[in-house]
Simulated assay, not measured.
Amino acid sequence: MKDHTIDITLSSTKKQKPESDQLVFGRVFTDHMFIMDYTEGKGWHDPRIIPYQPIILDPASMIFHYGQSVFEGLKAYLTKDEQVLLFRPDKNMQRLNKSNDRLCIPRIDEELALDALKQLIMIDRDWIPGAEGTSLYIRPFIIATEPFLGVAPSKSYQFIIILSPVGSYYKEGIHPVKIAVESEFVRAVSGGTGTAKTGGNYAASLRAQEVATDKGYSQVLWLDGVEKKYIEEVGSMNIFFKINGEVITPSLNGSILEGVTRNSIIQLLKHWNIPVTERKISMDEIYDAYSNGLLEEAFGTGTAAVISPIGEFFWRDEKLVINNGQTGQLSKKLYDTLTGIQKGTEPDPFDWVVEVK
């Protein structure tokens, strides 16, 4: 699409904004939303920003029956100088199109999507919280809208972007979380949809998460779906381990989501000349490293939480307490540096930050 003209209809009434210290994750939404339609034979059309409102869909819309949908998650940050910054938004739009390919959804124009996102943010700029640990969460998503009960790709879609002012994803903040190793359920397998950001992956994770929560754990550690031996992700995040001075993260194997934060962490570690390796790593190897006193740190990475230190694993009825349950030095340094780059308080040697004007 070459024409990036976006129609704008402003809301006549404004919602009450929550106080920064009252923000939770994903409960409150701004005054406006972006929406664009796809029709077979016409392509993507009618990009517009409108007042935030319900979506009206036919009960037979294919999203309800076959789950043909994808989404992304990124954030906008407000600096002390009142600048609005995005962190590597091009990577999110590229990944959205990779998810589209896997789910047989027509690709979007990434340049148009970023332009629409920036315009939407500026319209709802007053919603961006400035307090420490807060941000404006951005949720782009695409749903299949054709009213048809045949199992086939939809012939119509809607691409929507909504915004939500948020606090910390975990109530623990940067403090370590406790993780239960999942041995029964699996998140994804190679050849499935694990590399796509689609709702079905998250629906499939809910039962294991519910069991872990009942036992007092924040999230689950997912093992591979074939041997249930190799580590893949933690909750909805990528995972890293620091073992005897080396940082190890599971290699992308066809079932692990390629996280933007994951990629950024790897680049930061290399920039600091800290050994970092992407490879298969088993829970047995982690247990051996723990038993020998070599498991120094573990942490999850993702857009929502940024860095989530892990203080304990529960595996085979045993508690593996890492670094005395305290946040490790590397986890803290990575968190401070990455959030500092995102907020504009730390140097950005990678040109990751994009100012919204």
Rank of each mutant, 00 (worst) to 15 (best):
E346W: 02
I143A: 12
L149F: 14
F313Q: 01
P140K: 07
F141T: 15
E184P: 01
I162G: 11
D3M: 03
L117N: 11
A204N: 08
S61D: 13
N97M: 15
L78C: 02
K319I: 04
V321T: 08
L269P: 06
F34C: 02
P250I: 01
F350W: 03
R187D: 05
L86G: 09
L268T: 12
P165A: 01
I49W: 01
L269C: 08
A289F: 13
S156Q: 14
N324K: 13
V186R: 08
I179M: 04
S255T: 10
D317R: 15
S12W: 00
V306Q: 05
D317F: 06
H45S: 08
I142A: 12
W127N: 04
I138V: 15
L23H: 03
P165M: 01
N244M: 00
G43F: 04
H45G: 00
N324M: 05
G173S: 07
Q209K: 13
E258N: 08
S183A: 07
F71P: 11
H271V: 02
Q329W: 02
V354W: 11
L252C: 00
E258Q: 05
F185R: 03
D336G: 09
S291F: 04
K197Y: 02
S218W: 02
A180I: 00
K118F: 07
A113W: 08
E355S: 09
A131D: 10
V189S: 10
Q219H: 12
D288T: 15
E355W: 00
R316S: 12
I49L: 07
I161L: 14
D31H: 02
G328N: 05
L295M: 06
G173F: 00
G340Y: 03
D21K: 10
D288E: 15
I8P: 13
S218A: 15
L10G: 02
L330N: 07
